[in-house]
């Protein structure tokens, strides 16, 4: 299971000549840092990292706010047309994401946002899945707390913010982790909205590295490692939330 990763880590300390020898060596003959030097001197890693991280934060924070507000209303505030409107969300949930790409691209281009950081995050601010997940979470909560707060004179936003949202924390965490995973890993959408190559997130930059260093495998392996490791560390810290996110969704976003 982890053999490819082990191989990657061994290779990134080899020289290019050693990495392309047959039969290959297992351990590097000398630990050579050249791959990392090449990677960091030719790839604007920190700016790409900043773009990836910025887009992730924007998307996760925005989606949690928007989806939990709507999810709460769909679960707890009766209003006319609620069920058909929610039905529309469920319908969009079932449509594969590629069906939205052309229209989303046109919109981003129309707003003159191509090659910007907001372009990466905007579609992901809104999520039928997130709204659905939050609605399910709020529906299962006891009504008593809500009514007690209302009796104390809290307005609906206060009830939502101070009473209901804290109780939804596990679902929020699962959704945050799942949305973050998508945002960090996504290749197709960033590829489409960063045509000039400015403000690229890590996946796009890393894919570009292949064209540049086609056979310099140590550099490619080092790049792949450096770009992946931030999320791997987050995963190791927040394992439980990752597993909860996957279980609740089956990775459909």
């Amino acid at each position: 299971m982890v053999v490819p990763f082990v191989w990657q880590i061994l290779t990134m300390f080899k020289t290019t000549a050693e990495a392309t020898r047959f039969p290959p060596t297992v351990l590097p003959e000398t630990f050579s840092p050249h791959a990392f030097e090449t990677f960091f001197s030719t790839v604007p890693f920190w700016s790409m990292f900043g773009v990836s991280a910025g887009a992730l934060v924007l998307r996760v924070a925005g989606q949690l706010a928007i989806a939990s507000l709507a999810g709460y209303a769909f679960a707890r505030i009766p209003f006319r047309g609620r069920e058909p409107l929610f039905g529309l969300f469920v319908l969009m949930l079932m449509v594969p994401s590629q069906l939205f790409l052309i229209g989303q691209y046109e919109l981003i281009r129309g707003l003159k946002l191509l090659d910007t950081l907001p372009a990466l995050a905007i579609p992901g601010l809104f999520s039928a899945f997130g709204t659905f997940l939050m609605r399910q979470a709020f529906r299962t909560m006891p009504k008593d707390y809500e009514e007690a707060a209302r009796l104390d004179g809290a307005n609906p936003f206060q009830v939502f913010w101070h009473v209901m949202l804290p109780m939804a924390r596990p679902t929020l965490a699962a959704l945050a982790v799942l949305t973050g995973l998508y945002s960090w890993n996504d290749l197709l959408w960033p590829l489409i909205v960063s045509p000039s190559g400015e403000n690229r997130p890590l996946p796009v930059g890393l894919a570009g590295l292949q064209g540049q260093f086609g056979t310099d495998y140590p550099t490619l392996m080092a790049g792949a490692f450096v770009c992946s490791i931030p999320l791997v560390i987050v995963f190791l810290v927040l394992q439980r939330q990752f597993f909860a996110g996957i279980t609740s969704s089956g990775l459909k976003g």
Binding site: A65, I66, A67, L69, A70, Y72, A73, F74, I77, P78, F79, R80, R82, L85, L88, F89, M92, V95, L99, F100, L101, I102, G103, Q104, E106, L107, I122, P123, L125, F126, A128, T131, R150, N155, P156, F157, V159, F160
Partner: peptide, 29 residues
């Protein structure tokens, strides 16, 4: 019960975003 006005405020961002970035793109495709 909270009024429909509150519900409108709560769902507005999600509904507008869904309409502009999902429903419309889908129809346009």
């Amino acid at each position: 019960e909270p009024s429909g006005w509150w519900a409108a405020v709560f769902v507005a961002p999600a509904v507008l975003g869904l309409a502009a970035l999902y429903v419309w793109p889908f129809l346009s495709t």
